[in-house]
Design a protein around this nucleic acid. Structure first.
Lengths: 233, 233
DNA sequence: ACCCCATTTTTTGGATCCAATAATTAATTA
DNA sequence: TAATTAATTATTGGATCCAAAAAATGGGGT
């Protein structure tokens, strides 16, 4: 049965990103292995990999700890995402889109527009939009033809949004979410337009600004110190 | 004796970066373990880590392979380095330097200047300059106060320069190397000036351009296809 | 002679075992 | 009673073992 391997990493990553293992939580190999019903070996490998991704911090002889992400770190990661995806958009524009990529991007935009047409959002809509959103961004990164961008984004992928995912999906703020997501979607259209017209600088600028849209209306925790958005315990 | 662990990763990384394991070389666990005189376990861990870093490619049931880096990938990685270090410089300028950082940066520049004063370069000079150069760049990344930049740079750190290191240290071109390194050093002075004056946009622009200085005068392999600079076999 | 199936071999990944080290606790002494 | 030292415990990391899966090779059949 336990013919898995890579699965342990995904399971643990999910538990960290989703907050089941809150920030600051200490993780030891043996309890985690027992929890998952596997031996220590795959857990050891997973801990190392997640530490390399930046989700876990290694404590000398005290196991691992779920990394606390401060608001400043989230804002910093958003800046990094901005310059990297901005670069991707510029290079994609300069290279010019392939017919295939153009069609797929247009498809993404059409599907996203359909979500916003009815004028309000449900939780399922947001989940659906997030899938389309990721597709759109991945397509542009691929269209840049620069694999180093993908590598650099990898670490950024899960890290900063672990703590804000809960806020993004806050069902109490669905009306505010609508305006924010709709704005982000319109920025997608502008980026697409710049890509079609091969306007590299414009594509870069809009994409860079777009990175901030993910968070602009989200209430981060108020305190400016190192409190986390995922308060442990 | 084998109380090492992390060492195996470093040893293998060195062998890959320095070209002892040339690009395209296939690596299996058992021969590598025997070569290093350790068991398979640390080699397995090292292979996984190096694959995560992007130095190795995992082949389904055929072991690992040293990643081939094409010229286009190197140029792409230089672009990524440019936007990331450009961001670091901008944020460092906007925040303003601490007294401590200012002193350390000035020290770096003074030491670097001393190398170029005699008007020519030896191989030892280049090695020494590379150490100072790394210090300078690391100081600015730290001064940005944005840990996400460091994370994103990590993958970029070894990957693209594995194949060009041999060219950079080519002792036959020491006269050309002098002009190139001296130019890079002067760009450092401009970046430092921008940081002192808290000119974020200027610091970003110069640093972004500076990333290209690493390669601008280096002869990359001529062919535009997927030949590597580190031809295997 | 060629193709397909079976067997063997190679390789990977998980489980368990063992050694070493650091931390914590208890005991003894001042 | 407090501090220091020793002992025990907990935890990590390497080595070895085992099982599963895929690839390669060999044999048999058409």
């Amino acid at each position: 049965m336990p013919r898995e391997g890579q699965a342990v990493i995904s399971i643990l990553r999910d538990k960290i990103v989703s907050g089941v293992f809150p920030a600051g939580e200490r993780l030891a190999e043996i309890p985690t292995a027992e929890l998952l019903g596997v031996s220590r070996t795959p857990v050891r490998i997973a801990f190392r990999a997640l530490a390399q991704e930046g989700l876990l911090i290694k404590l000398p002889r005290r196991g691992y700890q779920v990394r606390k992400v401060t608001n400043d770190e989230i804002l910093g990661a958003v800046e990094v995402r901005g310059v990297l995806e901005g670069l991707a958009a510029r290079q994609a524009a300069e290279k010019g889109l392939t017919e295939d990529t153009r069609v797929q991007l247009a498809e993404c935009l059409k599907n996203a527009d359909a979500i916003f047409e009815k004028g309000y959002l449900t939780e399922e809509d947001i989940e659906q939009y997030n899938v389309i959103n990721k597709q759109f961004h991945d397509l542009i990164i691929n269209a840049s033809g620069n694999p180093a961008i993908q590598s650099a984004m990898q670490l950024n992928e899960h890290l900063p949004f672990a703590s804000v995912n809960a806020l993004v999906f806050n069902p109490k703020q669905l009306d505010r979410e609508f305006r924010r997501f709709n704005f982000a979607n319109m920025q997608h259209h502008v980026v697409f337009d710049a890509l079609l017209k091969q306007q590299g600088a414009r594509a870069e600028a809009v994409m860079k600004e777009h990175a901030h849209a993910t968070l602009s209306q989200v209430d981060l925790c108020e305190s400016p110190d190192s409190r986390t958005c995922n308060p442990s315990k």
